[in-house]
Write a protein that binds this DNA or RNA. Structure first.
Lengths: 105, 105
DNA sequence: CCAACATGCAACTAATTGGTTGCATGTTTT
DNA sequence: AAAACATGCAACCAATTAGTTGCATGTTGG
């Protein structure tokens, strides 16, 4: 996964409205635009723009069904983000381990 | 961990310059402002602002030492971010499991 | 067929952000 | 003490972003 893709992912998650949308979709049930736009405190068109941002960051996919559009989470994006953080932590832990070895000598 | 804190964390990581800073610090070696500002393609003062953003998001801590200031990663923030994503994935997997059960009947 | 519905798109505004430059201040080194 | 160094801070600018409104378009139900 490219550096830029990870940045895009975290940027997408780094907004209260978008994160809330992701949370609502995390139970696996796809919701259509209209439903998803409710209770966000912003207009439908405003919500639409945030959803589009999630699409661009590959956090979410759109599936048109008749006159409505289902929005579905793409959990692989989440996994990639988690893996990225885990890799950072691994480096960190490795260093701490080395320091521990050093002080124990 | 509050919703807002997670948003702040992801927002902090959702920028190429800041993510690069975090990566440089992930090996556990604290760097001072000056070193950290190099090779980012921006001015020292510009880099400083990004570092401050990381401080605000609790991704990094500052430790003044004489005339310089050491910047150290706070890995607990990373862990909290990873845990948050893992929780979303858990919900997701749970739902997939339920769907599998359903189709197998 | 027509009304109600779900959505898309463009133009616009206000706020935030990422960056700059210039200058001030405290700390080493010689 | 003076020069060099590491940093801090404020003012400013350009670009991006988050949101709005208004209107157009395709779809479904009676």
């Amino acid at each position: 996964m490219s550096q830029a893709a990870v940045v895009q992912l975290f940027k997408a998650l780094g907004d209260p409205v978008r994160l809330q949308i992701v949370q609502r979709l995390s139970n696996g049930v796809p919701l259509c635009m209209g439903e998803l736009s409710k209770d966000l405190g912003i207009s439908r068109q405003g919500a639409r723009k945030q959803i589009q941002a999630l699409v661009t960051a590959n956090v979410v996919q759109l599936h048109p069904v008749g006159r409505e559009v289902k929005v579905q989470l793409d959990a692989t994006a989440l996994t990639q983000g988690r893996d990225f953080i885990a890799a950072l932590e691994a480096q960190w832990d490795q260093r701490l381990q080395a320091l521990k070895q050093f002080t124990e000598q």
